[in-house]
């Protein structure tokens, strides 16, 4: 079964081409849609919701044609916009109840589903307070709740982690994962950060300039690129801590990258050792090695990929090995 299918889908404005003959086949699960700002992500969502006509080509959502069955699609699909969309003077409960009714739910069901959904997204006592006083994290939860309240089969989440701090970001990504695993709702989530999607998504689609750049199961991405970025301090024994660590890690049998073209632009380039995270023990080996050298560990993090790096992968540009379904976690 395919939840979203597009065939030579194009959208041209007088001066820009937002989508250029896009062919997609998205299966149930969590799918990440990655692209820089202006890559055509929002345009694609607009067309899939049946709100803007495509210039050319076909698209179907849940087996329904976006041209002719817009209202029926929107009955079964949820949408969380990127920007702020909450009136500050009403409470989350009132607002989500209203949005549930706008989705066609009878009053009683709207109230019950609202209570359930707000609890699932982790909004508790504060749901009775006006939303003007909410933190960004709470607002994002309400926005997610209004997209889920009518129990859709598919949700479009447009940049749901925008403006969140690292903890809030992790919470939101965990929540998105649960929308699929626990609620059984398929997810199409957009982001301009590939790194944060690879932990959440089963499948990642990368578009650029309205064209499909790459579509593959997340496992393919992570196998090819999983790396740990390690930064250490210098010490009296090791005036160049970075070099010392690199040698020690090589001696410990790990593969250390000397920094490819993409790494030079990372913050702190030159002071960072990139270690191939072949398996989960890598973390421990790095920690132990740093401790033995007596260096201070500044950071050790999963490297975040940026879209630029995908351009630099010459391997398999536009191809669609509709793998899907592999849970990376």
């Amino acid at each position: 079964m395919t939840v979203i299918a597009t065939e030579r889908l194009s959208k041209r404005y007088p001066r820009v081409t937002a989508l250029d003959r896009l062919d997609l086949g998205i299966k149930p699960g969590v799918t990440g849609l990655v692209g820089a700002n202006g890559a055509g992500k929002s345009t694609l969502i607009k067309i899939l919701l049946g709100l803007a006509p495509a210039t050319e080509g076909n698209a179907s959502v849940l087996g329904m044609d976006v041209r002719t069955e817009g209202p029926r699609i929107r009955e079964r699909v949820g949408y969380m916009p990127e920007h702020d969309c909450l009136p500050p003077d009403v409470s989350a409960t009132e607002f989500v109840v209203h949005m549930a009714r706008m989705a066609g739910l009878p009053p009683t069901a709207a109230r019950e589903r609202t209570a359930d959904t707000l609890r699932h997204v982790g909004l508790h006592e504060e749901r009775y307070r006006p939303m003007g006083g909410y933190s960004t994290g709470m607002k994002q939860r309400v926005k997610l709740a209004q997209a889920l309240v009518h129990d859709p089969q598919l949700v479009f989440l447009d940049e749901p982690t925008n403006g969140l701090d690292p903890v809030g970001r992790d919470d939101m990504l965990g929540l998105i994962r649960r929308v699929h695993t626990d609620f059984g709702i398929s997810v199409l989530v957009t982001s301009h950060l590939l790194g944060e999607l690879e932990r959440t998504c089963d499948h990642v689609v990368i578009i650029d300039g309205g064209k499909l750049l790459r579509s593959s199961a997340t496992a393919d991405f992570t196998q090819a690129t999983a790396a740990l970025a390690v930064e250490v301090t210098d010490s009296d024994d090791h005036p160049d801590g970075t070099a010392a660590l690199r040698e020690a890690l090589l001696a410990a049998g790990l593969r250390v990258e000397s920094g490819g073209p993409g790494t030079q632009t990372l913050p702190g380039a030159g002071r960072i050792v990139l270690v191939d995270a072949a398996d989960e023990l890598t973390h421990d080996v790095v920690r132990d090695t740093v401790a033995e050298l007596g260096l201070g560990l500044v950071r050790m993090e999963q490297r975040r990929h940026r879209i630029a790096e995908v351009f630099q992968t010459p391997a398999d540009a536009p191809q669609a090995p509709k793998g899907g379904g592999t849970d990376v976690r």
Partner: peptide, 11 residues
């Protein structure tokens, strides 16, 4: 408050 998109994304 940009609530229009929420209405438009409904049936």
């Amino acid at each position: 408050f940009n609530t229009m998109p929420l209405y438009l994304s409904r049936p």
